[in-house]
Computed example of a mutant assay.
Amino acid sequence: MFKKKVFIFLVLMVLFVKSTYSQCAMCKAVVENGDISIAEGVNNGITYLMVFPYLLIAVLFFAIYRYKKRAKI
């Protein structure tokens, strides 16, 4: 039951990540002085940099899962 709720929460987070915008002060200053292509580039860069920590955490959890599964056998 708990795993199902966590899975649904993660799927919803992935699906609605585009609707949650947040920018730091420096990013806001760059976007205000530029055009729409600069704003899209800043948002894409932030998303790109945000992906890698989540990938590292996913790999860590997968490694722990495999270790525990092999320890049971």
Rank of each mutant, 00 (worst) to 15 (best):
D35H: 04
I8L: 10
M13W: 09
V17I: 14
K28C: 00
T20R: 05
G41P: 04
C24S: 13
N33P: 03
Y21K: 07
S37F: 08
L15M: 13
E40I: 14
N43L: 08
F16G: 11
F9P: 02
M50E: 11
L12D: 12
A29Q: 12
V17G: 01
A29L: 05
V42Q: 05
Y48P: 00
L49W: 14
T20E: 02
M26F: 04
G41Q: 11
M13P: 02
V14L: 14
V17Q: 12
N44V: 02
A39E: 02
S19C: 06
S37G: 04
V11F: 08
V42A: 01
K18Q: 08
T20I: 11
Q23G: 02
L49E: 15
M13N: 11
V17W: 07
K18V: 06
L15A: 15
T47Q: 06
L12C: 10
M50V: 05
Y21A: 10
T20V: 09
L15G: 07
G34T: 08
M26H: 15
L49C: 15
N44Y: 03
G41I: 04
N44M: 03
G34M: 01
M13G: 13
G41D: 04
L49N: 15
V42H: 03
I38F: 14
V17C: 06
G34S: 13
A39T: 01
I8H: 12
L10E: 05
C24W: 12
I8Y: 06
M50Q: 12
C24Y: 11
A39G: 01
C27N: 09
F9W: 02
L49S: 15
S37P: 02
E32F: 00
A25E: 09
S22N: 03
A25F: 03
S37R: 11
N33K: 14
T20G: 03
L12K: 13
Y21V: 10
S37Q: 12
C27P: 02
G45E: 05
L15I: 12
M26R: 15
D35E: 02
V31P: 01
V11R: 14
S22M: 03
I38W: 11
G41T: 04
F9L: 02
V42D: 01
N44H: 09
V17S: 10
V42N: 01
M13T: 12
Y21F: 07
V11G: 02
G34H: 10
V30S: 10
I46C: 05
G34L: 06
Q23E: 09
N33G: 06
E40W: 03
D35N: 15
E40L: 12
V14G: 10
K18Y: 05
A39N: 03
V14M: 15
N44Q: 05
M13K: 04
L49D: 14
M13L: 13
F16M: 14
M26Q: 11
V31G: 00
F16N: 09
F9T: 06
D35K: 05
K28S: 01
S19R: 05
I8G: 06
M26T: 15
T20P: 00
D35G: 14
I46P: 00
S19K: 07
A39F: 00
V31H: 01
S22H: 02
G34W: 03
